[in-house]
Design a protein around this nucleic acid. Structure first.
Lengths: 211, 211
DNA sequence: CAATTCATGTATTGATCACTACGGTGACTG
DNA sequence: CAGTCACCGTAGTGATCAATACATGAATTG
């Protein structure tokens, strides 16, 4: 039923199938471990289709990264707006919890990102560059959120501490993914609570320090 | 066999050159990104030499992992013995500081380990299996150290908390490497102090919880 | 229905992959 | 000094890599 199943304008569906398959493969095997043959084998589509939808392997992986990022954003917290939680510690824990759940529920983006981030070749793949960009965007969003959460009147001081905290925040989420992945023995809720408390404590320390 | 190996000691040197080159390449490009051609190009030795010293690529990378681990252990703290530091917090900070310096001074092992750890193929490479083993060994050593550091008489309770702490400890070091790597804005000493304080606080919490 | 566009099917390109066959060479041994 | 062995040099093997040429068919357009 392949011939009858394939109708005109089903290109978009094929494109998504390719992205989905590439994401699954690249998140498990990394950039160099991902081959077009694996993608065609997984999707049932021929190489010519892959190259009709994407210019080359580099662009395929870059678009796969963006695709997984967009999907991750759907479950991740939107750092743009604050929820109405009075207690700062509770608000931090709330954000941490949602972010960690987004990572655990939809780990492929984070996983692929870590792999691309660790890569270091003389000829940087577009996928890695794109990852660093979206990570930068996320960091900026988290920083903006911290600037709102942090008390105090001195804007410059708040910005400085917020930037440092956002960086720390992201790194902590990296560790959280690696920890959750190393499996057994991790209670995610407990871990999130612990980490949120640590970040909160650090925020207070840095704020005081900057004063 | 061994005696005859001594007479031509050029072989051992070549073997080390190959391991060194492979480590540098694999730590930057990962398992699949590492090719024999890159190694021969880097060392100037022909492929036949590589395959005389190592059975295949898989074993080359596995031995490279072990080689980098041994070298890392030279700078890393030996968790077997305790230094005579009275204050537990200070001792924790001391260990953390030495461990973090080992990672930063000799990052290739940690970097290669993270890449291998993230890998997930149906056919697991020997290098990855070996990495998980040495990581397990390290965790056990850290756990044994924690069991000594932790107060309290109940052995079973200490063991449980120590195991959890060792796991947490390792993950925190992963995060530390990623953070230190993402560069600019990280003051390592400050970070170590912060993390040590967090781990110490967590140790106390878990101890109390277990009581 | 004719022309055009979209997407796939088929078949293949040259490059690079892991790996090896095999002979040479120099250091050591008996 | 003849023979052995460790290690390297040369020159490949077939497999797989990313990528492409070109034809086909199905839907859309005019």
């Amino acid at each position: 039923m392949r011939k009858t199943a394939r109708r005109h304008q089903q290109g978009e569906e094929s494109r998504l199938r390719i992205l989905e398959a590439t994401l699954a493969i690249a998140a498990e095997r990394g950039y160099d471990g991902t081959s077009i043959a694996l993608v065609t084998e997984s999707t049932g589509l021929p190489p010519s289709s892959v190259y009709w939808h994407f210019r080359n392997k580099d662009e395929l992986l870059a678009e796969t990264l963006e695709y997984s990022y967009r999907r991750w954003r759907e479950t991740a917290p939107t750092w743009q707006e604050r929820v109405g939680i009075a207690d700062p510690a509770a608000e931090i824990r709330d954000r941490m919890e949602r972010a960690s759940r987004a990572i655990v529920d939809n780990p492929e983006f984070w996983r692929l990102g870590l792999m691309l981030g660790l890569l270091n070749r003389q000829q940087e793949p577009a996928a890695r560059r794109r990852y660093l960009e979206v990570r930068g965007e996320t960091r900026a969003a988290i920083q903006a959120w911290w600037e709102q959460v942090l008390p105090g009147g001195d804007d410059e001081r708040r910005r400085l501490v917020a930037e440092r905290l956002a960086r720390f925040h992201l790194t902590v989420m990296d560790g959280l993914y690696l920890g959750a992945r190393s499996g057994r023995g991790w209670n995610l809720d407990r871990l999130v609570e612990l980490i949120a408390a640590g970040v909160h404590a650090q925020a207070l320390t840095w704020l005081e320090e900057a004063a």
